Amino acid sequence: MSRLIFILVVTAGSVILGYGIRVAIMRLFGAAPDALHDISKRGKQFAFLLLFPFSICISFWKLAPPHGPLLMLPVLGAAGTIAGAFAAWLMIRIFGTPPRQAGSLFVCGMSSNFGILGGFVCFVLLGDDGFYASQLFNAFVPIMFFAFGFPLSGMIGRGQRGFPRLDSSLLKDFASAAVPLGAMVLGTLLSTLDLPVPTIAMRLSDFAIPATSGILGLAIGATLYLSSIHRYFQEIGLVLVVKMLAIPLVVVPLAMVSGLDSVMGGVPMTAAVLLSFMPVAFVATIPPAIYGFDLDLANACWLVSTAVFVVLFPVATWVVP
């Protein structure tokens, strides 16, 4: 129960606190100052480009390089991402979603919070092995999203057909997405060299994992604007079907036949099941801002899917030994 409360406080509590700070500032000054947005942006950069990669590096340094069934985890993450993208695209076609909303629905279906939220949940419930498994699961996902998800969403959002082209303006974001992958490579190299992990680094890593989620929650809440969610009931419902049904239906059976239950005490198997139910990642709000399709819809899908995950999360803890 204490682990569950800790997760809920860090994930939901940080967003609520950040939102409360923004509301208080608006009541005092009549509008949220630009400085608040700047602080929020710097907080996201600090968490994503420093704290998060540091935790990943130490995790891979502490444990042996992945081998055997563990090598299936990146495949499962890629399969879940493809399943989310395909299911979202299929629903767009079936329901005739207008292009501007279709682009947002597509990225929300494709992008799941495997890395940061998933890593935090797996760390708290399953320990270092769980965090390690979550990052292996997420290894290829950022590259897939920036290399394919962005241009595909742009094409769908503009109602275009044909082969998508990678927008040169995405190269900076693509480089940022490669930072966690670089941290994995560095950690694996240090593990291979059999160098001891400094005690202080391990302690800092244990702090950095929840701190990453907390800082991102504060930063997101501080710039969160609650849109008219009722306008997007159908689209939000479709995204929830993708997250709670389509992706698990692909990932869980594959995990069950991958042999993951035979390694590390079955922790990778449990992690894969938990990760298959992750909500929309906040990165899904970036393509709508870049390409000009429905940002309010992306924000609403992120907010509602995360809220649903938080509400249903106690049920998910039943799979944890």
Rank of each mutant, 00 (worst) to 15 (best):
V124F: 04
A208D: 01
P98N: 13
P198T: 13
F123V: 03
L171S: 14
G214W: 14
F137L: 15
D129Q: 09
S104I: 00
S205Y: 08
V124A: 00
M184P: 11
C108A: 11
L190F: 12
S112M: 08
F145G: 15
A102E: 13
R158G: 05
P164H: 12
L117S: 09
W89P: 14
G157N: 04
M91T: 01
S104Y: 00
V179N: 01
G130P: 01
A102N: 04
P99M: 14
L170M: 15
G182C: 11
G187E: 00
P151Q: 12
A211P: 13
R161A: 09
G157D: 10
L190H: 02
I156T: 05
D206E: 01
G96W: 15
F174Y: 07
F86I: 14
A211H: 11
G162Y: 00
I94F: 07
A177D: 07
G130T: 14
A177K: 08
S111N: 06
N113E: 15
I209H: 03
S169C: 04
G214D: 07
D194A: 06
Q101G: 07
R203P: 00
L190N: 08
A183I: 05
V107G: 14
N113P: 13
A201M: 13
Q101V: 00
I92E: 01
L126C: 04
S169V: 12
I116K: 04
F140I: 01
D194Y: 12
A175K: 10
D128I: 02
G149S: 01
C122I: 03
F106A: 05
Y132R: 09
P196H: 03
A177G: 10
A88H: 01
P142C: 11
L90N: 11
L190E: 12
D194G: 09
A183Y: 13
D167G: 03
P99A: 08
G119V: 08
R100P: 02
A88R: 04
C122L: 08
A87M: 08
P196T: 03
I92F: 06
L190K: 15
M184Y: 05
R100V: 08
S153A: 15
K172V: 13
I200G: 13
G109M: 07
G127N: 10
M110R: 07
A211Q: 13
M110G: 07
S153D: 12
A178Q: 11
